[in-house]
């Protein structure tokens, strides 16, 4: 019983982290009409930036979280402006640039990994923070980082939801996600909004990286598996749906932790994809997927 509770809390936390990365992928997909294959590397860069910031003496863990968000968001905006947007010069915007954009995403993923290698090397880095004693729930000892993951993610969700539904800028972001030409005619600065969407998505990935840092080591290859898991989460939840991305993350996280706990632990990374295949067979649009728009 204690074991089950332990698995659930761990699975939930890991799942929320998947969900945060998946949320960014979904946000970029709905806003830019592209599947961003370098998002795992953005998450990795975010995690390293978190270490770099927390290593500055006097900066607390949550300071590093916010700092990594801001810097990674800015890096994202630069990537979008300098590299991806070039591909849309032929006209028609991101939707038309489709295939080239996917290849460019793969290239960016390799490039970011190499940049990270040059700066931080190939060795795994432990996270230089200590949260003190774990919390005891009955017989189980729960490291505080799981608590931090739950709290940070909830706060972030609330902020993002309020932004999208209650503010004028959030309304514009949703408008751009649905139809760029119409939104341009409404007076929305569409190119700026695209940068904003991309930056926010990258900031989310950074949060995931900083949150998972204290649980796992941080290393330059961590992005690849995360991308696959987050992708599975996004598809399970319903691609392009923001609540779906988070739900998908939690479902994937819980499922793989429980399976690894009670079945064969060494197959941990396979369970997510078993789930993915099952969901696609039973419900191809994902759990919360509704076809609200037809992608070109």
């Amino acid at each position: 019983m204690d074991l089950l509770l332990d698995f659930i809390i761990v699975g939930l936390s890991i799942g929320i982290v998947y969900g945060l990365v998946a949320l960014g992928i979904s946000l970029i997909f709905s806003g830019l009409d592209i599947v961003h294959f370098a998002h795992g590397e953005v998450y990795m860069i975010g995690a390293f930036l978190g270490i770099a910031i927390v290593s500055i003496s006097g900066v607390p863990y949550f300071g590093a979280l916010v700092g990594a968000m801001i810097v990674t968001g800015a890096v994202g905006v630069v990537i979008e402006r300098v590299f991806y947007r070039r591909l849309t010069r032929g006209g028609g915007g991101y939707t038309v640039a489709g295939m080239g954009m996917i290849i460019c995403g793969f290239g960016m993923s390799v490039a970011l990994q190499n940049v990270a290698y040059l700066i931080w090397g190939a060795a795994p880095h432990p996270y230089p923070v200590s949260f003190g004693m774990p919390i005891f729930l009955g017989n189980i000892a729960l490291p505080k980082s799981y608590l931090y993951i739950l709290v940070s993610a909830l706060v972030l969700m609330a902020v993002l939801h309020t932004f999208l539904t209650r503010t004028k800028l959030g309304l514009a972001v949703r408008a751009v996600a649905y139809n760029k030409d119409t939104s341009y005619l409404m007076g929305v600065n569409v190119p700026a909004m695209i940068s904003l969407i991309f930056g926010v998505a990258c900031a989310m990935a950074a949060v995931a990286g900083v949150l998972i840092g204290p649980i796992n080591y941080v290393q330059i290859e961590m992005g690849y598996l995360m991308l696959l898991k987050a992708f599975a989460a996004a598809v399970v939840g319903g691609f392009g749906s923001l609540p779906g991305a988070l739900l998908g993350g939690v479902v994937v996280g819980l499922f793989e932790t429980l399976c690894a706990g009670y079945l064969i632990a060494s197959y941990k990374d396979i369970y997510a994809f078993l789930l993915l295949i099952t969901v696609l067979m039973v419900r191809p649009t994902g759990l919360l997927g509704i076809i609200v728009k037809v992608k070109a």
Partner: peptide
């Protein structure tokens, strides 16, 4: 007739006043 189907009527009108 490019409205925003996932927004309410009021939100559609408010985005018209974006500027």
């Amino acid at each position: 007739k490019d409205m925003y189907p996932a927004m309410t009527v009021e939100e559609n009108l408010r985005i018209g006043a974006y500027t």
